[in-house]
Write a protein that binds this DNA or RNA. Structure first.
Lengths: 234, 234
DNA sequence: CGGAATGTTTGATCTGAATCAACTTTCGTC
DNA sequence: GACGAAAGTTGATTCAGATCAAACATTCCG
């Protein structure tokens, strides 16, 4: 593993307060791998064998039942994912696939649990990580239940604009097909929701979004930290 | 606080592995209170001041936005709730109200966080608690996105029947109005979903549910541990 | 560069669930 | 036990979003 990546991991909130020996032990057991795009990393139902740490690229977490599929989240570096399944030593509830060529560190779940039983700082950090993950999921569920399709899209765009530093123009971070699934609608509905938002201060051109009337958009979506998730909290 | 209740709390997974001094300190700081039905315990947006431990009764966790409301969960004894907000020292994302007269222990969040920084066993237990909560929320979100109204109700009934020990008859644990909101539909739609399930082996009479054809119901809902939540895991 | 594959938009239509309204049942309280 | 309020059901209607189908656009790759 490159020194630089090791430092990136070390600086993650989850690993920042570990003792050095414990961290070294974890890294020693870890695999650093590069995966091509569109590779299935995890299949829901499998028992969690590895904690995944994204260094580069993007990973989609999705779920399926019968013939239906839905995107649950898109993970961006540098973040860990599926910590909960590792901790519970339980089956993954979601599948994961790379969206782009991605560099990912795999840490055996056994070692994570061991580190975790030994190292208090790590346990505390895990609690913070899980708590934040929990809260983001509450927000996602509230969004699905309280807002309609157009409002969900509007709120998403509002938040992305904030994340980018309050700019009025930005590029969608992933394909619309995926965004639609994440927001709980079909691609066709997403397309129509974009159209409907033209009357509420949003202009779209391909992947490029411009917020032409922030006040109008804000009035529609009523952004709210109790519903809207900021990306890349770490 | 009654000795018996103290023991109930002590036996919760969250507190089971604490050292006795740490547990005693926590309990010392705690308030044991009885609340009447329909009392608002927590308002979303407030900063988390207390970890709540349900001893008796039932509490609804719900959320609202604009004029819309939705039930996120119904908490039954003996369980803790809103641990994540306490840990993050952040605003509650959900409101809480008692459904019945309820006995609840309130532990100041500061003390929880302190206990937690000191007591390793407690930190480990918190991770397990949060992980399980996280996973249940993933299931809830998957349910909302992957199943339609009738399937959600069918799956819910299937799971309640399993929880009751695989019996074919049981009584709904809460009013239908609330169940409808939890399952993400209107009371009218719930009523029609019950009707529709008559063709899939479910008979309903008031609050009393009878599964008349388990095979038929199972075929419809395709129950699945990756989607369906067992109540009262502790 | 060209053409196949995949993603996106648009239009027409359908449908599951929401809404609105009226009625019945159940529950809590005096 | 009666009465008022709230919960639940049923029917009629509407509507948001899904589905189906076809045209476009973009990306990928030989």
């Amino acid at each position: 593993m490159r020194e630089e990546d090791r430092n990136d991991i070390r600086n993650l909130p989850l690993f920042r307060n570990m003792t050095s020996p414990a961290f070294d032990a974890l890294m020693h057991a870890a695999y650093d791998q590069v995966f091509p795009a569109q590779l299935e990393l995890i299949q829901q139902g499998e028992v969690a064998n590895f904690l995944h740490v994204m260094l580069e690229g993007a990973v989609e977490l999705y779920a399926n039942w019968q013939e239906r599929d839905t995107t649950m989240a898109v993970v961006q570096p540098v973040t860990t994912f599926i910590l909960a399944a590792c901790m519970r030593d339980a089956p993954y509830l979601m599948s994961a696939r790379t969206l782009q060529r991605s560099r990912i560190v795999l840490i055996p779940a056994v070692d994570v649990r061991a580190a975790f039983a030994r190292d208090h700082g790590f346990a505390l950090a895990a609690v913070q990580d899980l708590s934040e993950g929990y809260r983001n999921l509450v927000r996602h569920a509230k969004n699905l239940k309280l807002r309609n399709a157009r409002e969900r899209l509007g709120a998403y765009l509002w938040q992305r604009s904030l994340d980018a530093g309050g700019v009025q123009g930005f590029v969608l971070p992933q394909e619309k097909r995926l965004l639609a699934s994440y927001l709980g609608m079909t691609p066709e509905s997403l397309s129509r929701a974009f159209k409907a938002l033209r009357d509420h201060g949003v202009h779209i051109d391909g992947m490029r979004v411009t917020i032409t009337d922030a006040a109008a958009l804000k009035a529609l979506v009523q952004p709210n930290t109790l519903l809207d998730t900021t990306l890349n909290i770490p």
